[in-house]
Design a protein around this nucleic acid. Structure first.
Lengths: 196, 196
DNA sequence: ATTTTATTGTACCAATCGGTAAACAATTAT
DNA sequence: ATAATTGTTTACCGATTGGTACAATAAAAT
């Protein structure tokens, strides 16, 4: 139980991990206090809004990380193919091959979704639009790019669910390989599945 | 607030809906009591094991429903293609186009996963094997059938996450259309994505 | 050195948590 | 009718919940 917390910003990643492991309701203040080594007094000094503010700032930080490490490169990179590949690599690393849960996806299934619905929606909406943009730059038309991006993101989320349910990291890795293939398959070959 | 609960078995679907809406920890006993109209005394008369037993019996009932309505037909039906199509229809109806959450998937992401890990694992494992079996009977080789089945199930779960996050039923419907297409594409055409 | 300011520990709060006890009413079996 | 069983009500339990008050302390600014 090391107490490495020096600044306020250092506490947010710890909070993120607690929420990931125990969920919003499961992360009790006493648990948070003990894991951060911070005592309720300090906690409420840093986060006057209580648990809700803690979760909300955690979501913001996660979103910020994805914006910098994933979304922006997808939109701005010179080589969209490389950016997509890098996205797959980043995501696989971030989720630690399925052992780490997506907090925002978990919140989406939870009853706390309503409380953070804006942050949750934005996270996925921006991801989808950024990925779509990269796909368009590869040569797909807008509609098909939107479809492919949606499918990729939802596959990643589903892979997290399934690999955790089966307690099998290989499920996640196989899914990521499929996602990567599906994302990088050029617009020329008319393969794949597009509904109706 | 009608009190239609007559028998013990009538209470389980109600419990299921409560757990779906509020999660395991969010479903407090007082909430359960008020929604079932049953008072703690009666609740503990029916479920001496408390909340854990309630959830456990809910999971069993869900699994039973899927076994009868989805898994068994996939394994036994004369026409595997028709069974797969029927699976897609059943699933879309069951999850009410993404508005209804998969309780077992939600539990998999929650910290209660450890408590019900066997039931959660079995639910998905049996689903995957049943779907794989139908795909093999269509003409796929075992490995590829396993891959396709895995991808389909995880896409459904991801679709539930994403469509709930974006609050958009169309996401779920599009995903189900893609799943159906991917599932029914014959083994002859060498399309699709298979990792490594 | 002294006065702000930022941080923390302790004690406390009402409310709710899951769960229990046992008296009570209703049903069923004999 | 009576006895045994099944179901329900009500009051209660200790523990924990998220949150507050405030004094004690540490750090920074003057």
């Amino acid at each position: 139980m090391p107490k490495i917390i020096a600044e306020r910003s250092d506490v947010i990643p710890v909070l993120a991990e607690i929420f990931r492991e125990y969920g919003y309701e499961g992360a009790s203040l006493s648990l948070i206090a003990s894991r951060t080594g911070l005592g309720k007094g300090s906690l409420y000094h840093f986060f006057p809004g209580g648990k809700e503010q803690m979760a909300s700032e955690v979501l913001r930080e996660i979103d910020g990380w994805f914006e910098d490490a994933v979304y922006k490169p997808l939109r701005d990179a010179d080589d969209p193919r490389a950016a997509i590949l890098e996205m797959c690599r980043s995501v696989a690393t971030y989720f630690w091959s399925g052992k780490r849960v997506c907090l925002i996806g978990a919140f989406a299934l939870d009853n706390v979704r309503d409380r953070f619905s804006d942050a949750i929606r934005d996270y996925f909406a921006v991801w989808q639009r950024s990925l779509q943009q990269a796909l368009v730059r590869i040569g797909h038309d807008a509609d098909r790019a939107s479809d492919i991006a949606e499918d990729a993101i939802l596959s990643i989320q589903g892979a997290l669910v399934l690999s955790r349910a089966l307690d099998d990291a290989a499920v996640f890795e196989r899914a990521m390989a499929r996602v990567e293939t599906g994302l990088l398959a050029g617009p020329d070959q008319g393969n794949g599945h597009t509904g109706s």
